[in-house]
Design a protein around this nucleic acid. Structure first.
Lengths: 191, 191
DNA sequence: CCTAGAAAATGACCACGGTCAATAATTAAA
DNA sequence: TTTAATTATTGACCGTGGTCATTTTCTAGG
């Protein structure tokens, strides 16, 4: 029979997460070191890995949490009416996702879960984002020749492409939005 | 004044690359260890890093080389006439790019160079691929409402999206091509 | 309370990528 | 040929993520 989770366990876990958030706040996601986290949390290194599968699992959790707050905000908004508005609405999220090269890499790596049983926080947010976009696209009625879910996946693909160029010398003179809008127009408003 | 590169240097470099290729051939890209490479090449560890900035730089070189061979083949082919044919033509390349999760991750990370001066082998192949597609799309004349280079970038974005799903539990029941074709149809043949 | 057994925490240890001061080999000029 | 300058190689060492047998703490049953 499985015993209830001890209060101690929850406290330790909370301390580890808090310590990581502190480091991120005072320097960056990239600068986070497991050794530094356990030092601040006052635990041994092994304890970290008893709570999180690996360092990236904690990153998944923290970054996924941040993304979820952006999605909460998006859900409050009315459906955008134009490709331009859609891009505009997604910009805060896109800016966060590309705030650091390291963050973008983690997001890419975790955006699709290899197995159903390990759909993590970030992968879940991608599912949520598609749902939000499907609702928006249903309302806006851009294209009637292809299903809404295909449209939403396309928006996702172009958003990733636009974001990737932020780290690409050939394109980073342009802002993410400047790259995103032409894609969206061509995708959602052909002809 | 810069001296000529020593023959010894080229030999050492060739031995390192050959050793790495051996390991990849007998196991996998992921299994490559710097220690094992230098052991087989008969050099010291430091020598490796005198020739390559880091482990990934050698991966960039080797994977970029493989991709280039696929592009050589694509350049020999006539321009595809339909979205389906385009997807079909790109499948061998897509299959290689997703032969290992690790390989796909490296490709994603190196597909855009952070600075003009360090456009590496993989980043260069992405430029080449866009050029090939621009020629194809010019010939095929799918869409006249948007420029060819935008069309080509879209094909790229959807190819990445279709490939990514190979490692995603939600979609990997479908083949890459099954996912790629609907995107391409919707992108290149709207209405 | 006491105790058995489960859950949690520990820290020495390992794997592996990467560094750098010291050394060896090569080259061009005297 | 000798020598000085340049280039290539070396391997001990480090940083950091991750493991696991052992120890400590907690909990339920008597």
């Amino acid at each position: 029979m499985p015993r209830a989770i001890q209060k101690r366990t929850l406290e330790t876990r909370a301390r580890l997460i808090a310590a990581a958030e502190e480091i991120i706040a005072s320097s960056s996601f990239e600068a986070m070191r497991v050794e530094e986290v356990v030092l601040r949390a006052g635990t041994a290194k092994g304890t970290f890995f008893a709570h999180f599968k690996d360092k990236d699992a904690l990153m998944d959790l923290i970054i996924g949490g941040r993304i979820d707050r952006y999605l909460d905000a998006l859900e409050q908004q009315p459906a955008p009416r134009t490709a331009e508005d859609l891009a505009e609405a997604l910009m805060p999220l896109a800016e966060f996702m590309t705030c650091e090269r390291y963050v973008f890499d983690v997001i890419l790596r975790y955006s699709g879960a290899a197995a159903v049983e390990d759909i993590g926080p970030i992968a879940a947010t991608f599912g949520r984002l598609v749902e939000i976009q499907e609702r928006w696209l249903d309302d806006a009625g851009f294209r009637s020749d292809i299903p809404t879910d295909l449209q939403a996946e396309g928006v996702q693909a172009f958003m990733l492409q636009a974001m990737a160029t932020k780290f690409c010398a050939l394109h980073n003179a342009q802002s993410i939005k400047e790259r995103f809008v032409p894609y969206l127009r061509a995708w959602l408003e052909p002809n």
